[in-house]
Amino acid sequence: MIFFKAVMKLFKARVLLWPVLLLIVLLVGGAVAAFASGGLNALALKALFSSSSSERDSQVVQAVTRVQQVALLSLHIEGIDRYDSNREIFGVAIPASEKTTLIQYKVDAKLGVDGSRVKIERTGPKSFRVTMPQFIGIGFDNPHFEDPLESNNPLGWLAEPAVQTRMVNNILSDENKQKYISQYAAALKEQAKVFYSGIIASVDPEITVDFEFAE
């Protein structure tokens, strides 16, 4: 009774407060009823409150750079990447805690050269020298990754799980690009000769061309 007398006084004092007071009365009444029927639960709270979220990605192009990359070789690569892990205690591996994760993949690796750094110089009336910069890995095309396969020992669930994105990044890493360049250095040089000799021969078939490759 005292509570409602106070409410009436506030109604008389400030009429604009009645929506707030009415909301308080409804919430208090709802809480009392909920406790009387067995207490508040998650469904009752969800009925009273709700939430919303949104995500937005804003990008601004800061610069545009022209590139003159010349692809000389395209390698079709198929392989299996393997990740092994186990659980250790004080630096000692727990027996039977090994876990192995395998990802089978296919990808095309493009190798070539930065055409803007190729130098073509005349060395005589019918001769030129082409100086080639170091070969580069231009990129990867058509990557395809199978779902990872896991092999667990009895306590393998203790081991750290493999991070698939980390394994994919390792497959497409700059280190692998450099490995392919080293493996196919001879083929890259031969293709560079064919490519640039063909360009010069299209102007004059009698021109001789010497090549110099960066180490």
Results as ranks from 00 to 15, higher is better:
residue 31 A to E: 10
residue 31 A to N: 12
residue 32 V to S: 14
residue 32 V to R: 02
residue 33 A to H: 08
residue 33 A to W: 13
residue 33 A to R: 12
residue 34 A to F: 03
residue 34 A to Y: 04
residue 34 A to K: 07
residue 36 A to D: 13
residue 36 A to H: 12
residue 37 S to E: 15
residue 37 S to M: 14
residue 37 S to K: 13
residue 38 G to E: 08
residue 39 G to N: 07
residue 40 L to I: 12
residue 40 L to Y: 01
residue 40 L to P: 04
residue 41 N to Q: 07
residue 42 A to Q: 07
residue 42 A to P: 00
residue 43 L to T: 14
residue 43 L to V: 09
residue 44 A to C: 05
residue 44 A to N: 02
residue 44 A to L: 02
residue 44 A to P: 01
residue 45 L to V: 10
residue 46 K to N: 15
residue 46 K to I: 12
residue 46 K to M: 12
residue 47 A to N: 08
residue 47 A to K: 12
residue 49 F to I: 07
residue 51 S to N: 09
residue 52 S to Q: 11
residue 52 S to E: 10
residue 53 S to L: 01
residue 53 S to W: 01
residue 53 S to Q: 12
residue 53 S to Y: 03
residue 54 S to E: 06
residue 54 S to R: 11
residue 54 S to Q: 12
residue 54 S to W: 08
residue 55 E to M: 00
residue 56 R to D: 01
residue 56 R to C: 03
residue 56 R to S: 10
residue 57 D to M: 00
residue 59 Q to E: 01
residue 59 Q to T: 00
residue 60 V to W: 02
residue 61 V to N: 12
residue 63 A to F: 07
residue 63 A to P: 08
residue 64 V to M: 13
residue 64 V to S: 06
residue 65 T to S: 10
residue 67 V to C: 05
residue 68 Q to P: 03
residue 70 V to T: 04
residue 71 A to G: 07
residue 72 L to W: 00
residue 72 L to M: 03
residue 72 L to T: 04
residue 73 L to Y: 05
residue 74 S to D: 10
residue 74 S to G: 10
residue 74 S to K: 14
residue 75 L to D: 00
residue 75 L to C: 06
residue 76 H to T: 11
residue 77 I to P: 02
residue 77 I to D: 02
residue 77 I to M: 06
residue 78 E to G: 15
residue 78 E to Y: 09
residue 78 E to W: 04
residue 79 G to M: 04
residue 79 G to E: 08
residue 79 G to A: 05
residue 79 G to I: 03
